[in-house]
Amino acid sequence: MNINNGKFLTAEEVYQDLFKKIETLVYMPGERISEHDLCEVYGISRHILRNAITQLKTLELVTVYPQRGTYVSLIDMKRVEDILFIRESVEQEALHRIMHFSDTTELIRKLEENISVQKKIINHEISIDRFNEADTAFHRNLMDAVGRGNVLSLLKDEYVHVKRWKNFELRDQERFEQIIRDHQLIIDAVREKHPVAGRKALHQHLDTVTNLKNVYIDISPEYFILP
Rank of each mutant, 00 (worst) to 15 (best):
G147C: 06
H124Q: 11
E60R: 10
R97C: 03
D188M: 04
L38I: 10
M28P: 00
R68P: 04
E222P: 02
R148F: 03
Y216A: 04
P227Y: 09
P195G: 03
R130F: 11
N150H: 09
N5H: 15
V14Y: 10
I128L: 11
L84E: 13
I187W: 10
R181P: 00
E192C: 04
R68S: 15
H183D: 13
P66I: 01
H47D: 15
K213Q: 15
T208R: 06
M99Y: 03
E222K: 13
H183S: 10
R97W: 00
L202C: 07
N114M: 05
L74K: 15
I86K: 04
K166C: 10
V41K: 14
Y42S: 02
I115S: 01
M77H: 08
V26I: 09
S34V: 00
R87T: 08
A134E: 14
V14S: 11
S45I: 01
F101C: 02
L107M: 08
R87P: 00
V146G: 02
T105H: 13
L84V: 01
V14G: 12
L185H: 07
Q55E: 09
L212N: 14
E112A: 01
I217K: 10
R32A: 08
L152G: 07
F131E: 06
I225Q: 04
Y216I: 06
V160Y: 11
P221T: 02
Y15T: 08
V215K: 03
M143S: 14
T104A: 12
L38N: 06
F138C: 10
T54P: 01
A197I: 03
R175I: 12
Y27M: 09
L18M: 13
Y27W: 10
Y71N: 02
P29W: 07
L152I: 12
W165P: 00
R130E: 14
E222Q: 15
Q92A: 12
T54S: 11
K120P: 00
L61N: 12
T63S: 13
Q118G: 09
R97E: 03
T24S: 15
R50V: 03
V80F: 02
F85M: 09
V72N: 10
Y159G: 10
S127A: 03
R181I: 15
L206P: 04
D207I: 01
G6I: 00
R171N: 14
R164L: 06
V209Y: 02
I33P: 03
T136I: 10
V160A: 14
I179D: 11
T105R: 12
